[in-house]
Design a protein around this nucleic acid. Structure first.
Lengths: 160, 160
DNA sequence: TACTATAATGGTCAAAGATAGTCAACACTT
DNA sequence: AAGTGTTGACTATCTTTGACCATTATAGTA
């Protein structure tokens, strides 16, 4: 079996045992598998993306770490759909607002969270000399980051 | 756990118990944690800045001390003040993050709201070809819009 | 009293240490 | 050839330490 597959399985086993969240040290894992540390990044980048239902957090420096969060299957599927199909690389203020309203109505977002997210995407927050396309790209990035955050923290599904 | 985090927690626990102001001796604390005295300065410089909602006073020489003051409790009414004083027309990702952390620790923001807001201001959400100054201006506008939203909702639910 | 030396503090900064990230070249599979 | 996997050099970030600096109090001395 390929090394990357072995590491993938190893991490998935850890997640099975230790529930939905694990923390690891890149260098320790690399040493355990006797490979280059960057191999770990490769495995994470190709097998533990949001598309695969995982979220990663890391920190450098002394006491650094890599944390891997597993999303619930439903959450993951809905998130991928939301991120790719509904948000994409650019999104207008209006569409973003509609999407957030939907999520609120489905009780994926509390009224407060929805309010905050709407404030972050409304056009009046973007009244600066930037091209419209760049605004929509920025809005998409910000909206995606917020949705990923919701997915990481909430136990409930992102809804249909 | 990192030494710096341990010291941070230690100080925050002291503040919890002893109200809004504590006094400590740099060398004593360093000896207690068995570290270099300058480690204390590092912790203060990275976790107890005005951005984090703390003020430091110190004095050298015999009878020297370090006093740490936690700045006044931020209520929703004071959010408007924060908008101009702490956010202004431009704000860096780091300062925005510190401000949000502070509001979360004071329970002005729920962990979820804080997480969403952090996602909306983090640098990686702004990786597009825009000048840094424009990014900071945009971030300020978005952060203000989100805080205003919180302030409005808090008023309606808490009656002021 | 005025001055000085010394002890007792805290501050600064740069170097070293500890992690993780990126990217492009190279290797292996299909 | 194209796609996937592996590595290593270089980079970025965060922490810890230590040498040297600055300030203040106090004891000793003229």
């Amino acid at each position: 079996m390929r090394l990357s597959d072995t590491i993938e399985q190893f991490i998935k086993t850890m997640l099975t045992h230790d529930e939905n969240e694990i923390e690891l040290k890149r260098n320790e894992l690399a040493e355990y598998f006797n490979c280059a540390p960057s191999q770990i990044n490769y495995v994470l980048a190709t097998r533990f993306t949001p598309d695969h239902g995982y979220l990663i957090q890391s920190r450098r420096g002394g006491g650094g770490y890599i944390r891997i969060f597993r999303m619930h299957q439903d959450t993951s599927e809905q998130l991928v759909y939301l991120l790719e199909e509904r948000v994409g690389d650019q999104i207008s203020a209006l569409k973003a607002d509609h999407l957030i309203t939907q999520l609120k109505e489905r009780e994926v977002l509390s009224p407060m969270e929805a309010g905050v997210m709407k404030a972050a995407v409304e056009e009046s927050s973007y009244t600066l000399p930037i091209h419209a396309a760049v605004k929509d790209a920025l809005r998409a990035k910000i909206l995606k980051a917020m949705l990923l955050q919701i997915a990481r923290k909430s136990e409930t599904s992102l809804g249909g």
